[in-house]
């Protein structure tokens, strides 16, 4: 019998149409019936909070998510969704994983909990979209914002009240008043999933240039797949990451310029520098929590240093 996998993604159907479905369709087509992946969207089979556990126990065979929102019980989970202000461009993520050794750390950490880490990719930038404008840090005070757990911890320093809800409920929660805004994605996702219809403003200062997302599989299920199909899985998932790179890169600029549903605001550079300084402190606190975390923070610091020294176009100023 052909191998059958159930893969559940963090994304709802509207976003999934871009960020996962094309890759799954390609895989199923090329695999010619030797293996078939059934795709399920956010919360469809199991709630996102239980997703990791479901994969570990084999209820779900494979998962597309960041470490943070699926609450993986690993040392690297805090770096999951994103790392506040660590990254400037989407190419930073593959560079860190492929040339700076993060890939090996992730594979090792996940193997310890019975999960195969298949591949990491850069996803979209992380900006605020809100109902009332944010023109200065003071405007963040008291805002109830949907965001990643780690970003939430960081943003409480500026008076943000982070709220975590099922991803699919965010649009409704913006309308029922549970949320004042989101700090989750770039403007492409805001328009694609309809959040642009229920928010008014988009803050151009980003907390991350691109957050990190992954594909994982239950270790036993992975080992049952013959090598040529394992290879095909890797290639198709890489293709999914690549699709995002150009889809977001094009979308972020085009929607800012040509669309009018979201008005753009910016926090002055001098004030935003505060946030970056706070983020550096935040990394040091995280590094102090464990050896693995310290190692990852050191790698990212070293990477950023190299990029700054390299100058334009890697880093400006």
């Amino acid at each position: 019998a052909p191998i059958k996998w159930r893969l559940q993604t963090y994304a709802g159907a509207a976003l999934g149409e871009h960020v996962i479905k094309p890759a799954i369709d390609s895989f199923n087509k090329i695999a010619e019936g030797q293996m078939n992946i059934e795709l399920y969207f956010a919360d469809q089979l199991v709630p996102t909070g239980e997703l990791f556990q479901a994969m570990q126990s084999g209820t779900i065979d494979a998962v597309q998510s960041d470490d943070d929102s699926m609450a993986s019980p690993t040392e690297v989970t805090v770096f999951g969704g994103y790392f506040p202000l660590a990254l400037r461009y989407s190419l930073d993520v593959p560079a860190l994983f492929n040339s700076y050794g993060l890939d090996a750390i992730w594979k090792e950490e996940y193997a310890k909990v019975g999960v195969q880490h298949i591949s990491a990719g850069s996803w979209d930038p992380c900006n605020f979209a809100t109902k009332t404008p944010i023109n200065s840090l003071a405007d963040l005070q008291g805002k109830r914002v949907f965001t990643f757990p780690t970003a939430g911890r960081f943003l409480t320093r500026f008076g943000v009240v982070p709220v975590t809800l099922p991803w699919e409920d965010v649009e409704v929660a913006l309308q029922t008043g549970e949320l004042d805004g989101i700090a989750w994605s770039g403007i492409t996702e805001d328009y694609t999933v309809g959040w642009a219809n229920v928010t008014e403003y988009f803050l151009t200062n980003n907390i991350s240039g691109a957050w990190i997302g992954h594909f994982f599989a239950n270790m036993d299920r992975w080992n049952e797949v013959p090598p040529h199909l394992q290879e095909l899985l890797k290639v198709c998932f890489e293709q999914s990451h690549y699709y995002r790179q150009h889809w977001y890169w094009a979308g972020e600029a085009r929607l800012r310029v040509n669309e009018t549903k979201l008005k753009l605001t910016t926090i002055p550079d001098a004030e935003w520098a505060n946030v970056e300084a706070e983020a550096v402190k935040f990394w040091d606190e995280i590094a102090a929590e464990s050896e693995v975390k310290a190692k990852v923070v050191a790698v990212i610091k070293q990477y950023n240093e190299t990029m700054t020294k390299a100058g334009v176009p890697y880093r400006f100023g």
Binding site: G49, D68, S69, A71, P73, P149, G152, R153, T156, V161, P162, V163, T164
Partner: peptide, 11 residues
Amino acid sequence: TYNERSPTAWR
């Protein structure tokens, strides 16, 4: 086993 905490800011 994993000291699971809710993935929210309140944790």
